[in-house]
Amino acid sequence: MSSERKPSESIPLEIHDLTVAYQSKPVLYGIDVTIPPGKLIGIIGPNGAGKSTLIKSIMGLIPIEAGWIRLFGEPGKRHLKRVAYVPQRESVDWDFPVNVLDVVMMGRYGRLGLFRRPKAHDREVAWACLEKVRMTPYADRQIANLSGGQQQRVFLARALAQECDLYLMDEPFAGVDAATEASIIELLHALRADGKTILVVHHDLPTARNYFDMLMLLNMRLIDFGPTEAMFTYEKLQKTYGGRLTILSEVADAVRQNHES
């Protein structure tokens, strides 16, 4: 694809020379990647590699120092509505007065705009998404009364209810039981069959080999991106995991201290 042609709308995500700093400390350097549509892609790297940061900067939750990100051919937040974000099973207040169905309905709010109330169709979609994650018996339950795997499935249902074309998931398999993990993978395959593009930050290398079509190897810089089997070479994995880029980290610290003084 030559650079003179208009950026294609069919490319869900294109990142060019992305540099992101987190509290004055550079976390991602010069990331260049084009994500093809309709694939299930894993983002792999050691702790602190900037995987979550990459996802957050695509969503516009973290400011960008340099470079650009294009979603479906357009920069900025134009097509952000077509992107669903499933964050890490974070510090949500589990005592909040909502039940499971309420949380999934929140996934529909993005499509409603201000001043509009959810309609019957929205409820149907929410209900269908609950069925896909097999949580319909729990629809009336207040969210504190759920296990870890069930909570993850509720947030997944919320993302499904958004009916997006690009899904960004941050460690959806962390701390879930085997049954939930299997059902999540089943769900992701169904999404891919529908033509959706899915990016998953993943923490476990062995399962990454089985789960994903393509892998992005990340360690502050993009080590490589391509079909999964091609990524599983010794040198590539060594570059990603072995020998953390110590010089880079130390320079990053020095930059931060410079900013603070």
Binding site: K81, A84, P87, V98, M106
Partner: peptide, 21 residues
């Protein structure tokens, strides 16, 4: 008028941001 925006931003602010609230 802003019930659902208040609800989502109270429950999960980063999700709310991601759906442009």
């Amino acid at each position: 008028l802003f019930y659902k925006e208040l609800l989502v931003s109270s429950f999960d602010p980063s999700f709310a941001r991601s759906i442009r609230i």
